Amino acid sequence: MKKLQISLWLCCLVFATGCTEKDLAIYEPATAGSSIYFADKFDGAVIGTSDVMATYKLRQISLGYVRLELQDTLIALPVRFTGNAALQDREYSVEIDPASTMQQGKHFDFVDKHPVMKAGKFTDSLRIMMHRTPDMQLDTFSLTLHLRPNDNFGTALQWKKLPSGRDSLDVIRYDLAIDDVTGIPGAWTDALVKPYAKDYFGDYSRAKFLLMVQVIGMDPDVLAVMPAATADKYKVLDKIIVWGKYMAYWLGIEKQQNRIHYDENNAEITMGTRSY
């Protein structure tokens, strides 16, 4: 299963959604009250395609291709409510499911200890700071959050049906899974592409790959996930040749300045023989 890859240029991942009066009018405040829910899950159910459903039933995050110096990642989950905006700030309640394997204070922290829906607003962002820990390289950790009723908000709007009516999403529950596992990118394993990766990039190492992503500024998926069509693979070969030669040049300049880069095995990072 392809996991959601977090772009290396970002230390913040924000799931943004809008809020319209039409959305809010779907549920009458007189019957549902001010019911709070996760906005992107609700909007995903409105779209209702199979890939959207899979995404929102479990949001998967992989730090495997994020450069190593980025140790913290900010995630913002939009929260919305039915009914009218208030003239004052209103606190809402979030509960961590006891079955979660992520530990608060170790793997994550809430940025706001007491999340608040601001006065005059219909949407807030529940902000979570994810901490990159060594055990994430060995296992996938889960975090399940539940919106709970309090004096300000109810949770009468729990399920949002798909347009087909055959399935629905629990919109007051959010499931996250995170790891820091890096598999060998497809460029080093694909039958057509791997001879070029060997010749221009050399042997694979995680540190080398992350350094390439950082220096070149490329999308890691270009080398991590190979396209199915042969014609598209040939386009990847062109990039491999250019990137391999550039990295060899860059590493040479770095070495002249006494900045030698090493991989996770303390071996000097070099490129493939055809890049020199």
Rank of each mutant, 00 (worst) to 15 (best):
L176T: 04
S168A: 15
D190M: 01
V181D: 01
L162F: 15
I178W: 00
Q158A: 09
D190W: 06
Q158F: 05
W188Q: 01
T182Y: 06
H146Q: 11
F141K: 01
A177Q: 03
T189P: 07
P149N: 13
K160E: 12
L143H: 00
G165I: 10
F153P: 03
L176R: 06
L143T: 01
L145V: 03
I184K: 13
D179K: 07
L162N: 09
N152I: 07
Y174F: 15
I172G: 06
A177W: 01
L145Q: 07
D170Y: 12
D170I: 10
D175G: 04
R166W: 12
T155D: 08
G154V: 10
L169I: 04
L143Q: 01
A187V: 15
D175N: 13
N150M: 02
R148W: 09
Y174I: 07
L147Y: 11
Q158C: 12
A156V: 12
W188Y: 12
R148I: 12
R166F: 14
W188H: 04
Q158L: 07
R148Y: 10
P185A: 02
A177R: 05
I172R: 08
G165L: 05
G183P: 06
N152W: 10
A177I: 00
L157P: 03
G186H: 09
S164T: 15
V181I: 15
N150Y: 03
P185I: 06
N150G: 00
L147T: 07
W159E: 09
A156S: 14
L145P: 00
D190H: 01
S142C: 06
V181C: 06
S142P: 04
T182R: 11
D170Q: 13
R166P: 05
L162W: 13
Q158Y: 10
H146I: 06
D179E: 04
I184F: 06
G183E: 15
K160W: 07
P149V: 13
I178H: 00
S164F: 11
L176V: 09
G183R: 14
W188L: 05
D167M: 10
D170W: 07
W159S: 14
R173T: 15
I172H: 08
A177F: 00
D179Q: 07
G183K: 14
L143Y: 01
T189S: 07
D151A: 09
D179N: 15
D175R: 04
D190A: 05
L162K: 10
P163Q: 02
S164P: 10
F141I: 02
G183L: 14
N152K: 04
D167N: 13
D151Y: 07
A187E: 01
D179I: 08
L147P: 12
Y174R: 05
D179V: 09
K160L: 12
D151V: 13
A177D: 03
R166I: 13
L147H: 00
G165T: 08
D170A: 12
N150I: 02
N150E: 00
K161A: 15
L176G: 03
R173P: 11
G154I: 08
P163Y: 01
R166G: 11
D180V: 03
R173M: 14
S164W: 11
F141Q: 04
I172E: 01
